[in-house]
């Protein structure tokens, strides 16, 4: 890719106007863009607009589009809110030097099939603020066609939830074979979600049905009641009593996870087959649920 003219506009309005020409492109970190072919007549750099900040309030995080992946990774508030899932989602993306350049705006705007970033943000209550299009839920934005608008910032509305992020890669800094985020809202009628990405298509978010949430809750109850039994019982008896209860619950859970994964459209590419991805998805969702239940969060 070659760039003819470089402009650093002084306002979003100016950037938007410049971007209406077909040959203009917004510059994020430029890492993906530079791999493309052809000539960009006007590269519109949003660097001077203060969009490299994360602002946390009681209700939400406001994340400017020029915030780098490294800043996401190291942000204390996001780390706390996601119980470490934010760092987990980005720390395998190429290297520190790369993440110091790659932006959250470019990552979400790209709606890449392989995206760790899109997968995690879909598991949060994320909204995309577009200059012209206003606030759009991320799940809707992910399905929209690319146009000449500008992604100004992401808004993550805080809700009481636990989040786990898992991915599988053939080698450490390669594109992921599969990405998975599992989250569970807090409370008795808690709604859970599983997001599966790198299918290899764009990440999709599935609400965990009552059945799966109940199975998960049942497994937790039976595990703790089995632990309770063990206190007052000879070890052999506790073991024989606890196994059927636990395995019944975990069988139910396995079945529910399998049913869920059957709904996820998977494809094959050079990294893995569709079948392998389905198998991985089952494993990662189960691991995610287990981590949520056991509170094994970093």
């Amino acid at each position: 890719m070659k760039i003819k003219q470089y402009v650093r506009p002084a306002s979003l309005e100016e950037a938007y106007e410049l971007n209406q020409k077909k040959s203009a492109r917004i510059l994020g970190g430029m890492l993906w863009m530079r791999l493309g072919r052809g000539m960009v007549q006007t590269a519109v750099d949003l660097s001077g607009l203060g969009l490299d900040q994360i602002v946390e309030t009681q209700e939400e995080f406001s994340i400017g589009s020029m915030v780098t992946l490294r800043t996401l990774e190291q942000h204390e508030g996001l780390g706390r809110y996601t119980q470490g899932a934010m760092r987990e989602a980005v720390h395998s993306i190429v290297g520190v030097q790369f993440r110091n350049l790659a932006t959250v705006g470019g990552s979400i705007w790209g709606r890449f099939g392989f995206s760790d970033v899109l997968t995690l943000f879909l598991a949060l209550d994320t909204w995309v603020e577009l200059y012209q299009g206003g606030l759009v839920p991320l799940a809707k934005f992910a399905e929209m066609k690319k146009d000449n608008d500008i992604l100004v910032r992401l808004i993550v509305k805080k809700r009481a939830q636990k989040t786990v992020y898992l991915s599988f890669r053939n080698t450490r800094t390669d594109f992921p074979v599969l990405t998975c985020a599992v989250c569970m809202e807090n409370g008795p009628e808690a709604q859970g979600y599983a997001v599966i990405g790198a299918r290899p298509g764009r990440a999709l978010c599935f609400a965990l049905g009552r059945e799966l949430s109940d199975a998960a809750a049942e497994s937790r109850r039976s595990t703790s009641s089995a632990r309770g039994l063990q206190k007052d019982m000879p070890a052999e008896r506790a073991l024989s009593e606890s196994v059927p209860i636990e395995s019944a619950a975990s069988e139910k859970l396995e079945l529910a996870v399998r049913e869920l994964v059957q709904k996820v459209p998977m494809g094959s590419n050079m990294r893995a087959s569709a079948e392998y991805r389905s198998h991985l998805a089952e494993v990662l969702i189960r691991r995610g649920l287990k981590k949520l239940q056991e509170g094994e969060l970093s």
Partner: peptide, 25 residues
């Protein structure tokens, strides 16, 4: 392809890939 790290320099003290960033930045 922004993959190897050989071109690493510091931009305002942060390590970045010089092959992947415009000089004007």
């Amino acid at each position: 392809t922004s993959n190897c790290g050989l071109c690493t320099v510091f931009l305002n003290e942060k390590p970045v890939l010089s092959c992947s960033v415009l000089a004007m930045r």
